[in-house]
Design a protein around this nucleic acid. Structure first.
Length: 514
RNA sequence: GGGGCGUUGGUCUAUCGGUUAGGACGUCGGCCUUUCAAGCCGAAGAUGACGGGUUCGAUUCCCGUACGCCCUACCA
């Protein structure tokens, strides 16, 4: 009697654990350029964690740096996330209960909270010029001291004097007053205990002279106001975390949990950058990497599937996600493995899905029109399917199938030398016989099997191996020595096209064409 | 200079004290085949950065060293 009750209780517990609606996480990209692969990486795991717990995944734009701000960037980031399929539940353009989700629209909030800190004696106005700060740093460096603000404005004048200078309209920043003693520590979700001595930490600027907040202030204020429960971000933020924790303390707010994920690396192991790696998501999209392959690949960096699987879906990542599966060292982004994985995904695509993904690439190459007729599209689809097995990126298709669209393709030198000029004795007769066999047959009869049958019959009649006919025929059809399965290729080309290509190639063997 | 984080084959990783250190990409070889791929099979490649501990036993735990990375901005 007691057992079923226990089971029921367990079930209830599991259910509530799976739909912990209090979980709220976020990514906070800065719109300063192309959508970054690091944003996708961090976004992926935020998304996975949120969905694993049935919580919310938000997007907040941290556009507080007017110097680096780029107009087009914000929309591009949103668009890239949509392309990847890791859509936020709340954010700019879709809104949500705790907006606005763009920091430049929240300036009054930051100013108010910064002021509150000054009021409480946790922060102070600073009037030091950039020149003075630069000199100070130089001196500290020369003296091999820690580089840190010397609290000139805090020590040389009283609160009232600083107030007066502000009233006089002097430009100022607001700095937080870090405690001089003690340590700040936290239990990181992927790194366990981390601790910093407060005395070593700088009096960070919270509010800049232009009235914009720095990351540190905006980040803490917004995470609190937006109800963020876990901050899942890159490793590069570890050393700023104590500042953030101290800010939570000063405000009297409960801090979120922190998870610092490994940082993606260039091949030389430095932090990933566009100088050494492809960081723009647009590059991957334009190269013909499938979004699901990119996500799968990113999920393999720093994180591992509990069953050591390499190929798995986003849904499966969501299902199996735990912080324990993280490795702490920064992985090098290995393009070769991504390309392999992408090939795996391409091969798994149904013809319609494949074609839908490839069409833009064919259009860009001028092989398919902007708005193709159904027959054109059907033909193009068959061409693409012909090469599906061997390709690693969608962008490779255009070059591989271009000859299918162009009856007057250029013959490769190597192919010409081997089979056409000079042509082995049997080649021209073989071509003539092929034409003779094909001509009387109706289009419907000319299947790949039929082409194969004809080819082998002719080879036998000429007393040569099948390859001796197959290879020159491939050259006649495509101008190349490599390519898709020959007979399928011929079936797709269709009778008239096949006949044309034989005739044209016969001319070539006679020196007619180049 | 200071602080923090890290360190398993070229690369991504498994191992939660006892394994011939496993898998994947890549490389090389073979098979298949009308070519190129794909697929299948196989091989090479790790003294688990180094040195100390703890332990009957360390890749796994602790300390130190080296090396790498990140931060050290009125950038995020």
């Amino acid at each position: 009697m007691r057992f079923p009750l226990l089971a029921l209780l367990l079930l209830w517990y599991n259910n509530t654990a799976m739909t912990d609606t209090t979980v709220r996480v976020r990514i906070a990209p800065s719109p300063t350029g192309d959508p970054h692969v690091g944003t996708a990486y961090i976004g992926l795991f935020n998304y996975a964690f949120a969905h694993h717990h049935g919580g919310a995944f938000l997007l907040r734009l941290e556009d507080t740096d007017r110097e680096r701000y780029k107009e087009s960037s914000a929309h591009a980031i949103l668009e890239a996330l949509t392309w990847l399929g890791i859509n936020p539940d709340e954010g700019p353009e879709i809104g949500g209960p705790v907006g606005p989700y763009i920091q430049s629209e929240r300036l009054a909030i930051y100013r108010e909270f910064a002021e509150q800190l000054v009021q409480a004696g946790h922060a102070y106005h600073c009037f030091c010029s950039r020149e003075r700060l630069a000199e100070m740093r130089e001196a500290q460096e020369a003296a091999k001291e820690a580089v840190k603000y010397d609290r000139f404005c805090l020590c040389t004048m009283h609160e009232e004097e600083r107030r007066q200078r502000v009233r006089d309209g002097e430009p100022y920043v607001i700095r937080m007053k870090m405690p001089d003693a003690g340590a700040t520590s936290w239990t990181d979700l992927v790194r366990d205990a981390v601790s910093f001595e407060n005395a070593l930490i700088d009096d960070q600027v919270l509010l800049k002279a232009d009235g914009y907040p720095t990351y540190h202030l905006a980040n803490v204020v917004d995470d609190h106001l937006m109800g963020i429960t876990q901050v899942i971000r890159a490793e590069e933020w570890i050393s700023s975390t104590p500042k953030h924790l101290v800010l939570y303390q000063m405000f009297g707010w409960e801090p979120p949990q922190f998870a610092h994920l490994p940082l993606l690396r260039n091949p030389d192991r430095s932090k990933i950058s566009k100088r050494h790696s492809h960081t723009s998501l647009h590059w991957y999209r334009d190269e013909g990497i499938l979004p699901q392959a990119l996500l799968n690949f990113l999920a393999l960096l720093g994180w591992s599937h509990p069953e050591e699987k390499e190929v798995f879906t986003l849904e499966e990542l969501v299902e199996r996600f735990t912080f324990e599966r993280f490795n702490q060292s920064g992985p090098v982004f290995d393009l070769e493995k991504l390309r392999w994985l992408n090939g795996v995904y391409i091969r798994a695509l149904a013809p319609d899905e494949l074609y839908a993904a490839v069409e833009p690439f064919l259009q860009r190459a001028g092989l398919v029109q902007a708005h193709p007729e159904p027959e054109e599209r059907a033909f193009a689809k068959q061409c693409v399917v012909l090469e599906q097995e061997k390709v690693r990126t969608l962008a490779e298709f255009a070059d591989l199938v271009a000859f299918m669209f162009n009856p007057n393709f250029t013959y490769e030198d190597e192919a010409v030398k081997k089979w056409l000029r000079p042509a082995p004795e049997h080649v021209r007769p073989a071509f003539y016989q092929m034409i003779e066999h094909i001509e009387p047959l109706p289009e419907e009869a000319l299947t790949a099997e039929k082409y194969e049958e004809i080819t082998r019959t002719i080879a036998e009649a000429l007393g040569v191996g099948a390859g001796k006919v197959i290879h020159p025929t491939r050259v006649a059809m495509s101008g190349r020595t490599k390519g898709p399965s020959l007979f399928h290729m011929m079936e797709v080309l269709g009778k008239q096209e096949v006949l044309y290509r034989f005739n044209r190639t016969i001319d070539v063997t006679r020196g007619g064409e180049e």
